[in-house]
């Protein structure tokens, strides 16, 4: 099932392992590669090691063994900082990643760290605030923002550093439906507008994963499946094994097959057409 590693690949992980206590591997001999500009979903149950993987990629945790290549260059202690400047990570909890006292201060935080010239900051902040639909809230304090708004500010604060890889660690899982949909819409737009940006989304929302270019499934620290969502998200028994559900559309299709309705639809509208046509 493993993709053939091409020279185009941007991020390549080889035999990566990690443990917090030195014996139980939270990440256990994982290898995969991610092409530039793709949208990858990493699926797994609670405690499967998804978040640890994200922290390893951005260098918040130090790997125990294995290699990470970025643009065919192996990452070691010396060039770790270079990789860090090219990756961004959005965390799950909207409150705990809001550093600044107001929206504009928070978006500026990364720029300040990069010694970005002061006189160009304002324009840059406004541009990125606008790209996440937060331009009207620049002066607001975090206490007066909803969870979805805070996550959008976090996105602006990450994108302003022009990363090549953006990792979302369950970025919408603590939001209400309205917050979820606004953040997802913004992420969709970012993906469409930035052809060069690689997005790795860690999630347990399988319906969301269906829309990505590639899916990785993690279970107990191991990479158990990798491939196009259309291929691997139809395998119900494999999904059940890692405590995941099938996407709604696929599940209904499978159940309909038993009463003789055949469909290979990828979305609800297509499925409805197929059901209607089966008359």
């Amino acid at each position: 099932m493993r993709d053939i590693i091409t020279t185009m690949s941007k991020l390549e992980i080889k035999n990566l392992s990690f443990s917090y206590d030195g014996s139980n591997n939270v990440i256990d001999d994982i290898s995969f590669s991610v092409e530039k500009g793709t949208f990858v979903s990493v699926l797994g149950h609670n405690g499967s090691g998804k978040s640890t993987l994200a922290k390893l990629i951005v260098g918040l945790l130090e790997k125990e063994s294995g290699q990470i290549f970025f643009n065919d260059v192996e990452i070691d202690d010396k060039n770790l900082r270079d990789l860090q400047t090219k990756t961004s990570l959005i965390f799950q909890n909207p409150d705990n990643q809001f550093v600044g006292s107001t929206v504009e201060d928070d978006i500026a935080f990364g720029l300040e760290n990069r010694c970005f010239p002061h006189d160009q900051m304002q324009a840059e902040i406004e541009h990125f605030a606008d790209s996440v639909n937060m331009l009207d809230h620049l002066k607001k304090e975090p206490i007066n923002l909803s969870g979805g708004q805070k996550q959008r500010v976090a996105l602006a604060g990450a994108l302003i550093l022009r990363p090549e890889i953006l990792i979302l660690d369950e970025a919408t899982s603590m939001l209400d439906p309205k917050g979820k949909s606004t953040v997802r819409r913004v992420i969709d737009r970012i993906h469409k507008e930035n052809k060069e940006l690689t997005i790795i989304s860690i999630t347990h929302d399988i319906d969301e994963a269906l829309l990505s270019d590639k899916v990785l499934i993690l279970s107990k620290g191991k990479l158990v499946k990798e491939g196009k969502p259309q291929d691997i998200l139809r395998d119900e028994s494999a999904l059940l094994e890692v405590k995941l559900d099938m996407p709604f559309v696929y599940k209904l299709e499978k159940e309909l097959k038993e009463i003789g309705v055949n469909s290979n639809a990828e979305n609800i509208d297509q499925l409805v057409e197929d059901i209607w046509a089966s008359k």
Binding site: N46, S173, H204, K243, L244, D245
Partner: peptide, 8 residues
């Protein structure tokens, strides 16, 4: 069930 995976 906030933040739980489908099985949990």
């Amino acid at each position: 069930t906030a933040g739980f995976d489908p099985q949990s």
